[in-house]
Design a protein around this nucleic acid. Structure first.
Lengths: 193, 193
DNA sequence: AAAATATCGGAACAAATATTCCAGTATTTC
DNA sequence: GAAATACTGGAATATTTGTTCCGATATTTT
């Protein structure tokens, strides 16, 4: 057998993710990617085929990475109510540690690409649907556990919470200020009482 | 005096706005702009200097246009509470009539450009601040009119409402579905009770 | 040790990019 | 009606874009 891969595909994908995340699809050139990853053009193309496929791979990388982080955090919580709170609190902390104001890669993709590219629209759509579905099941569970008000239907609350979640992501990019974000989360969750 | 301008600057700005709004800064080429506006390259550059300045002009055009539309709608309302409701309802309707899924030009600029370009960050920031300030004053007024709960401080509520407003804009782009958006607005505003 | 082979790096390419330039045009003022 | 003038259109330019190609590299198997 010939040469093994001399680079770590996983790490390269991480670098590409970071760049696309920070500068967007059209704002990132192959040259940027070559510089950031340390790979040559040909290696990038041999591994990922073209720019669009690399973007998709980077976005998927982001998705699984985020999902894993979230699940780890949720597993530590006992009640559904607490899990919902952690979803918001975890993102709040993430925002405040985002040095470059990159925001959320999924949201960035949604605003830049989804009205132009169906494949990306599908990925973003299913990610968003998955998040709303998670909230739906947590709300149902919380309502039967007695920690969440039954004034609204679970579906209604899930749609609301998810929309607020997206709002938090944008607010965090526009105004990464703890006091502001804490206020937002506090009032958002007060609906569950 | 020589030739008068043969084109309507205002209309050209409208076309440019539409394009940047739909395809973003990096996704829109000068060629696209030439085609859409019907002007030639040189006329575009003579009038707007360069792509970046044209984008800024288009964004400002959007801002004043939106502001005017909103103010007209608000003037028809008697109470502050109703004005707040109209802010949300008007945007809900706007989303459902947005054929191209363009979303909100300010939000798009926020996610694509603000972490790369300070001038645009300033424009978006002041627009967002203005919106939050409007909500703040409406909330204060509503609380003294007795239509809005005094459980939360006006500042807190304003931050919350504005974040929800951004969330609605994103949700609307990702899922332009009336039932979903109605649910979101309903629960969002229930906090005011 | 040598052949085999998949990967690598950088040069090369065509297309698209933002921007500039200049000759022509049309209207206003004298 | 003629000169002046500001604007217009399209060709031209230099740069950057995404992508391809090929000789060189390095390691595994024989």
């Amino acid at each position: 057998m010939p040469n093994e891969k001399l680079f770590d595909t996983h790490a390269v994908l991480g670098k590409a993710m970071e760049l696309f995340w920070k500068k967007g699809y059209h704002g990132t050139s192959i040259n940027d990617l070559v510089e950031a990853t340390g790979l040559s053009r040909s290696s990038l193309y041999a591994t990922f085929e073209d720019k669009h496929k690399l973007y998709v791979a980077a976005l998927r990388h982001y998705q699984t990475w985020q999902k894993k982080g979230l699940n780890d955090a949720l597993d530590k919580q006992s009640t559904a109510r607490k899990k919902i709170e952690v979803i918001f609190r975890a993102y709040l902390e993430a925002i405040l540690h985002d040095a470059y104001g990159k925001g959320c890669f999924m949201v960035n993709t949604a605003t830049e690409m989804t009205n132009q590219n169906k494949e990306l629209a599908k990925i973003v759509g299913s990610d968003f649907d998955g998040m709303e579905a998670l909230m739906f099941s947590l709300i149902k569970q919380g309502q039967s556990e007695g920690n969440i008000s039954k004034k609204q239907k679970p579906k209604t609350l899930a749609r609301y919470l998810f929309s607020c979640y997206l709002g938090l992501r944008l607010t965090g990019q526009a105004k990464p200020d703890r006091a502001t974000l804490e206020d937002v989360v506090k009032v958002t969750l007060s609906v569950l009482d």
